[in-house]
């Protein structure tokens, strides 16, 4: 029974990884850049929610911070990142890595290195009893559902809205997109805005579930990255699956010995990389570039 429990808890955590990963994957899909500061933006959002919630309340904090994350993403893309995109593959990597260093250290200055968490009161302790030994926490369940909902929304957005189609078109061929009237720079801004918005959701839920510190950004990035690779590049549902597989691996690892949790996740990642480098659920042929 402890194993069922470990697997179920891992699966629920997987939703969180999928949340963190979906934005990373979207930004990469549209612009072919990897946002090395993705995890740091998540942690930034978590801290921002704490600060805003002190003056209003938790809901107010979330409602205010998430759109600001999207705006921040749009702004950074339009100002710094678009410029670096034209300068080859290295520049955006360097710039996002610099973002990562800057965000971590600004957070360190403002909030110190002490662990914090987003307080949710009773919400974090409530759970649904499935059987005698299996309980599902409300917060982990909400986290998982958030991962699924974000994936579904992104899927719908990309496939059935005009802006989503424009994103995919720009990903296929930016020049041709320009020729049908799509402003690439705006589209890139939108992609990063969505990316940071979802990173923000991930960060806030992360912050509700565990304690965090300014240095946690890279860990969040690594989990998101592993989810993307396990699931398969360029596939939304693959990313969700990758997150879940990673979560379950970590759950089982932790059950063996707490220190093995993260290591078990890494091992599954390596195994996928060696045995199935295209990922578990790769993008279909024809949809590929």
């Amino acid at each position: 029974m402890v194993w069922t429990n470990a697997i179920v808890q891992g699966l629920l955590t997987g939703g969180l990884y999928a949340l963190l990963a979906s934005g990373l994957s979207l930004i990469f899909g549209v612009m072919r850049i990897v946002n090395l500061a993705h995890g740091d933006f998540s942690i930034l959002a978590a801290y921002a929610v704490i600060s805003v919630a002190m003056h209003t309340n938790l809901i107010g904090g979330i409602v205010l911070v998430l759109p600001v994350m999207a705006l921040l993403g749009y702004f950074l893309q339009r100002t710094l990142l678009n410029k670096s995109l034209a300068m080859g593959v290295l520049s955006p990597l360097l710039i996002t890595f610099a973002f990562s260093i800057i965000i971590q250290n600004v957070l360190l200055q403002v909030y110190t290195a002490n662990n914090k968490s987003i307080l949710t009161g009773r919400f974090s302790s409530e759970s649904i009893k499935i059987s005698k030994d299996l309980q599902i926490g409300l917060l982990p369940l909400v986290t998982f559902l958030a991962g699924v909902i974000v994936t579904v929304c992104l899927h719908y957005f990309l496939n059935h809205s005009q802006l989503g189609r424009a994103l995919r078109a720009t990903s296929d061929d930016p020049m041709a997109a320009d020729l049908v009237g799509i402003n690439n720079r705006h589209i890139y801004g939108i992609a990063t805005a969505i990316g940071l918005f979802s990173a923000g959701i991930g960060g806030v839920l992360f912050g509700m579930r565990t304690q965090f510190a300014p240095s946690f950004g890279p860990i969040a990035l690594v989990f998101a990255f592993e989810a993307v690779i396990i699931g398969g590049l360029g596939s939304l549902w693959g990313t969700l699956l990758g997150g879940v597989v990673l979560g379950i691996a970590q759950g089982i690892g932790s059950q063996i010995q707490p220190a093995y949790g993260i290591l078990a996740g890494h091992i599954v990642f390596i195994a996928v990389l060696v045995l199935r480098p295209q990922g578990l659920l790769p993008k279909q042929m024809g949809a590929q570039k």
Binding site: M87, S91, I95, A98, I101, N105
Partner: peptide, 19 residues
């Protein structure tokens, strides 16, 4: 920490203006 922040900013400026 300010020292690393400054380094980050210098790096960004360099990448964009003197790649």
């Amino acid at each position: 920490a300010w020292y690393l922040i400054v380094l980050g900013i210098i790096a960004i400026v360099t990448v964009l203006t003197a790649p």
